[in-house]
Write a protein that binds this DNA or RNA. Structure first.
Lengths: 230, 230
DNA sequence: TATCCCATGTAAAGCGTTACATGATTAA
DNA sequence: TTAATCATGTAACGCTTTACATGGGATA
């Protein structure tokens, strides 16, 4: 049902045709929130109209139909927004791939992670440029027209993209640390100084790609088998 | 096809039965990476076996079958890991809901965001506790057994959860700022909204660097309409 | 024995992807 | 005129969800 509400959300912002909504979908929701293809959009718009949640307010050239949300549609959207399920659906092929990297050897895994970090950095640069050109100072943190559509999405990217990049760089240092140890001497895993360096992560956020030298300490073997449960 | 590779990944880590793999799935992949139900797991295991990518290595009580990955399975997984598509699938019902918040009035949106931030904080606390109990110092940033399954996932949570929480708090300040401005003419807006703590300020997005170059501030009009494109 | 959790499935319906199809408008 | 892009759809197939179904093992 999520596609239905994604479309109602777009329509709540502004009426539009199937083609136009598909474009807006791609530009604003596709990356972080929800993915859908154009034919799915057309079909869902038909259903929305059949259910009285949207209506055709204009018909133009070559069959173009402009849809607008109805009052019933607004009510339905509102209800959905205010009643989140306990277990929302999450699917992210990016992240899945990254989580399974342990199945590769360290060199390959490192390369995939470096590509990922670089791609994230490019996205971040593009977003920063967009947002600056829209008269928004990312350091100040105040956007014009708060709560406008796309506003929340832009802020989301500005927060999450650096974290995502930093995670990838952190993962690379983990690999390098292990590789360094394995090269040294087999079996033994103990190196002094566990508190020595302060975080090779966060903060520094080196633009561009990872430098990832830094050596660290590895402590005894341990669990951390899984992420926290449901 | 992603479910297939999620399962191959789990099997590459360790063999297991359908029930067991379902549990591992829920604990490690479900939250950030990929969601699937138990019956889907059983069906996919059958297909995996039929395709020679996994095999039954043990049959136990009440029909229990333990599957292991085959060499063909490892090769297939490896190929998938090394050849990412240009446009991976992303679906996140959480984020979708948050992006569409503009369709609510500010008070309601604020409440949804506050609930979200609190839930994320609880997740983060749980993860931190788990990771500390597993002999990992989150400030040091060095994990035992790098690249182990779940290791990358734990690090991911440690990086992304704070960003996610900070974004929600940033969004709340945006709402409050706008509400303060609007209070000029419109009616009362100084209500003591529900359990809100009011201290939505956190150090992150507010640091440094003087304001902008500023030219023609178009407030209220549609600057920053969309997130960066595909 | 009753009850709960373990453990594995099947069937139907709904959602999403891939491939195919069609015609209009705009720019070279 | 030709090609690219705009713009809208249909059909078949595959993936996911919901609901239903079954029985073993452990414990009170």
């Amino acid at each position: 049902m999520s596609l239905r509400y994604a479309l109602l959300g777009l329509l709540a912002d502004e009426a539009g045709s199937g083609y136009e909504l598909t474009k807006r979908f791609e530009r604003s929701l596709d990356r972080y929130a929800w993915h859908a293809k154009h034919n799915q959009v057309y079909q869902e718009l038909n259903r929305l109209a059949a259910d009285g949640l949207a209506e055709v307010v204009e018909e133009g050239a070559r069959g173009r139909k402009t849809y607008a949300i109805t009052e019933a549609g607004r009510a339905d959207l509102r209800h959905w927004l205010l009643n989140p399920p306990r277990t929302p659906v999450v699917r992210n092929e990016f992240v899945l791939r990254l989580f399974l990297l342990f199945a590769l050897d360290p060199k390959e895994a490192r390369s995939v992670l470096a590509d990922y970090a670089a791609a994230v950095q490019r996205d971040l640069d593009a977003l920063t440029a967009l947002v600056e050109s829209a008269n928004f100072d990312p350091h100040d943190g105040v956007l014009p027209d708060p709560l406008a559509f796309g506003h929340l999405a832009a802020g989301f990217g500005l927060h999450m993209l650096p974290a995502s990049r930093d995670w990838a760089q952190w993962a690379i240092t983990q690999i390098d640390n292990q590789a360094g140890e394995d090269a040294g001497h087999e079996g033994a895993r103990e190196t002094g100084t566990s508190g020595g360096d302060g975080s090779a992560e966060d903060g520094d956020a080196t633009k561009g790609s990872g430098s990832a030298e830094d050596s660290g300490a590895t402590k005894g073997s341990g669990a951390v088998d899984e992420a926290p449960g449901s």
